[in-house]
Structure formats: C-alpha cells, structure tokens
C-alpha cells in the first residue's frame, strides 16, 4: 500500500468560492453564508484513484488561501511546495475571470513545473446560454492547464471531477 501526499493550493479573488469548493469536496456540504478566509487553512482528503502501478492512495493537502483583494495580494510563499493549484473565478464577476491570468503567472513563477486547473464557479447562477458563453469566451490552450471547468459548489457540479483530474495529472 503506497500512499502519496500532495499539496495543492486554492487561488483566486476573494469570495469566488474557494472555501466552498473545498467544503463541498471534503465534507459534501455547502452553505450560503460567506466567511472570508484569512491566512491559510489546510484540509486533507484521501482521493480514491483508479488502479495504478505505483500509487494506491493519494492524500491531498488542500491549502485554502486568503482571497486576493484590492488591498492584499496572494502571499507567494504559500505556493511553495505545491504541485498544483486550483484557480477559481466567479462567473458572475467578470473581473475575477480577468484575474485568472495574474494568478497563473504567480503560480508558474513559483512552480514552473506545476499543474493548474481552472474552475469557473457559481455556474448554478447562470442559464444554459450564459454557461456556454462563459466557457467558450475563455481561451486557455496551454500545457499544464486543465479546464476551464464550470463548477458549482452549491450543486456539486464538476467539483469531484476538477479535484481528481488535477490529482491525476500531478501524479503522472
């Protein structure tokens, strides 16, 4: 039985749903209440993997970072030792989508070989037309980037998928 531990970070603007995505993934719960994260909170989750040669189990250490605001940028030292990040944006706030590019640069600046998954979150707030529009409007054809995934921490849409896909890539 081989267990591997990997650190990933949740990065994005404040209030986009980083904490909610973790909560959905780890505790299968969601709350409408907003409690902003300060500093960092680390959660763990064992991710079941499809049968692989060398690894039986993956322990994900998910770092929930304080969201970026006008007044405070993301502290790069948190990203050290992180094999991957999940960059989250809020589909109802276009500026959070614009900031994805900044977060990408920040992460690749610290971990040039890392993996990134992009979550366009709160898609439950969009109708189907808007959803297709959002997904197609984002051009991210680069290696080491997965997505964008249209996620919803509220309904659970694509939440497991985005974490496990990212985990798989980090192990490969």
């Amino acid at each position: 039985m081989v267990t591997v531990s990997k650190k990933i970070c949740m990065v994005g603007d404040f209030g986009v749903g980083k904490t909610s995505l973790i909560r959905r993934f780890v505790e299968r719960e969601f709350s409408d209440r907003y409690l902003s994260t300060v500093g960092v909170k680390i959660s763990r989750k064992v991710v079941p993997l499809p049968p692989m040669d060398d690894v039986d189990e993956l322990k994900l250490l998910i770092w929930d970072l304080e969201g970026q605001t006008k007044f405070k940028a993301i502290t790069p030292t948190y990203l050290q030792g992180s094999s991957g990040v999940l960059i989250v944006a809020d589909v109802t706030r276009p500026e959070t989508i614009d900031h994805i590019e900044d977060h990408l640069q920040l992460f690749f600046g610290v971990n040039p070989a890392g993996w990134v998954a992009i979550a366009l979150n709160k898609t439950d707030l969009l109708d189907s037309d808007e959803r297709t529009h959002v997904q197609t409007s984002l051009e991210l054809n680069r290696p080491q980037i997965l997505g964008p995934y249209l996620t919803s921490a509220k309904t659970g849409d694509n939440v497991d998928a985005i974490f496990t896909e990212l985990a798989k890539e980090m192990l490969a």
């Binding site: 209030g15 907003y34 902003s36 300060v38 500093g39 969201g67 605001t69």
Partner: peptide, 17 residues
C-alpha cells in the same frame, strides 16, 4: 490579530460583493 483582521476583511469583502 488574525481574528481582528478576519472581521475587517469580512466587512470589506462583503461590502465589495
């Protein structure tokens, strides 16, 4: 200080949202 800062950030972010 973190708890103090949390309430501050909370208020600022909620207002922004």
């Amino acid at each position: 200080t973190a708890i103090l800062r949390q309430s501050l950030v909370q208020r600022v972010n909620e207002t922004e949202l």
